Amino acid sequence: MIRCVVVDDEPMALEVLEDYIRMAPNLTLQQSFSNSLEALAYLQSNEVDLLFLDINMPDLSGIQLLKAVSKPPLVVFTTAYSEYAVKSYELDAVDYLLKPIEFDRFMKAVNKAAEQLQSKSGVVANGATAKDEASVAKDYIFIKSGYQLIKIKLDAILYVEADKNYVSFVTPEKKILALMPLSEVMQMLPPEAFYRIHKSYIVALQHIEAIDRQHVNLHKQQLPIGKTYVADFFKLLNQGI
């Protein structure tokens, strides 16, 4: 488990990050602070893996706090001000989250941190290799649909279909509608398991039943292969999927 601390002087922002950490299967909330000086004292005397740190705070800013910690943990900066982005990366931050923070974007930052921690240790606490742990962390995603965050198992997704500003995650049982571009969906899905075959479709390679030059068949559905995607798609097939 990745031990986390949250520092944010805004109560609502602090609560959101606390909830997200509790929802994530590989995180544990060690402590949270609304006061940066109290957080500094804690960080100086306790081992922490990952710090979610607001930049714009009274007393000590997040950047000042981080510089004051003798052995700083990995840090993900959070702020409502995009002009801090460059400064955060200069300090070797794992990631930079702009408020209001969506859960899927939060998990991207978490996965980056997990990879860095695993590359340092090589072995996780339960004895699995870092590669094993990474694959476990990627077996599902959370999608914001309306006012809900819906958990979807990756192996249940047949394909993803875009319609204007929305996408539908299609499983054998249902369709889950979300407001996001297909390009963002591609960043969420493991590239070894999903492939974009059309401007409007991403398919799960494991569920493909048949292919011709113009279509992919899966689960009683026939999806078109776009002209601009066909060459790369068949190159992938020739390499073995």
Rank of each mutant, 00 (worst) to 15 (best):
P11K: 15
M12H: 15
L14F: 08
E15F: 13
V16T: 15
L17A: 06
E18D: 13
Y20V: 06
I21S: 05
R22W: 00
R22C: 12
R22G: 05
A24T: 13
P25T: 14
P25D: 15
N26H: 14
N26R: 12
N26G: 10
T28C: 07
L29F: 12
L29W: 11
L29P: 07
L29D: 10
Q31R: 11
S32E: 00
S32A: 15
N35G: 02
S36M: 06
S36D: 02
E38A: 12
L43E: 07
S45C: 11
S45A: 12
N46F: 09
N46G: 08
V48K: 04
L50R: 02
L51D: 03
F52P: 01
L53N: 07
L53T: 06
L53V: 00
M57E: 12
P58H: 11
D59G: 00
S61G: 03
G62W: 04
L66D: 01
K67N: 08
A68N: 06
A68K: 09
V69D: 01
L74T: 00
V75C: 06
T78A: 05
T79D: 07
S82M: 13
S82I: 13
E83L: 13
E83N: 15
Y84L: 11
A85I: 10
V86L: 15
V86W: 08
K87C: 04
Y89T: 01
Y89F: 15
L91G: 05
D92C: 08
A93D: 03
V94N: 04
Y96T: 00
Y96N: 02
L97G: 05
L97C: 13
P100G: 03
P100E: 02
P100M: 08
E102H: 09
F103W: 06
D104N: 09
D104R: 10
R105I: 11
F106Q: 06
M107I: 12
V110G: 09
N111S: 15
E115W: 06
E115K: 02
Q118K: 01
